[in-house]
Design a protein around this nucleic acid. Sequence first.
DNA 1: TGACTCATGTCAATATTCTGACATAGAATC
DNA 2: GATTCTATGTCAGAATATTGACATGAGTCA
Lengths: 145, 145
Amino acid sequence: MHLPTSVGYLLKEASSALRSAMEAVLRPLGMNVTHYSCLELLAQRPGLSNSELARGAFVTRQSMNVLLVALERDGLVSRAEHASSGRALPTELTPKGRRQLATASAAVRAVEVRMTASFSDVERAGLGDLLSRAVSSLRADHPTA
Amino acid sequence: MHLPTSVGYLLKEASSALRSAMEAVLRPLGMNVTHYSCLELLAQRPGLSNSELARGAFVTRQSMNVLLVALERDGLVSRAEHASSGRALPTELTPKGRRQLATASAAVRAVEVRMTASFSDVERAGLGDLLSRAVSSLRADHPTA
DNA sequence: TGACTCATGTCAATATTCTGACATAGAATC
DNA sequence: GATTCTATGTCAGAATATTGACATGAGTCA
């Protein structure tokens, strides 16, 4: 079966394949993609709020909130009790969270390497560039809504 | 906020942006992305079964089945009563389904055009090529599971 | 100061999707 | 021919995500 070959379809197909591959390597570690994404975001940007994490992981605030509650219960992250300014509650990784992320990050990186295994350096960079520009074009004159 | 820039993240970001843009143009038509995908698949491959449609739209058989029930109720598709061979029930578009697809297809095509508006022809083809190869690499030696 | 806008956290209810399981039909294997 | 394997449709339940709504805090502007 050799379905549609539009760029849009290929984009969806690639994204789906990547997600499946990530789920496959994260499951043995007791994590899923959103779980991992949240930890990775917090490692790169300590102190992100629930809403910011939601945007970064492409889910709603509400979904991210239930995840954060679970992550805090498991001692992987710590949330501020009350906001120092505004309503945003900064979240940070605990040492335990950092350890779990380390193994997960290696597994995910391996998946990404496998995905671009046949690429030259130029092609690898080119794909990133094209995807960035595609995102910009879609968002131009089009409220994020 | 200028989050991760790995190819994997950009892929997810682009896919998410495309989906949002598609949802935005399809909502006024009373459709969502899976709804549209199903019709588009049936137009290109009349007679696809529920399971085949599910794979093509990247959802489970169960999800596609509830969609098909709704589409049939609305008179957009027709499903065979009983299988002529095996258990697969071939599905086809009705004239009404074809009409609805026509308008949706134009809207979606416009989104895709906007997404690649800044691309040269070479770049447009290049993105498709890179995505195809990425999918192949991810699936190589890795059961679709 | 006051009205307005915007973003955030949170609650409730609804939709949607998935996981797990089962029986059946055909192909493959022995 | 019997057995095994794979794929399909379908049922039931659980998990997940989303939509909608509300009050609060901060910034903007007249």
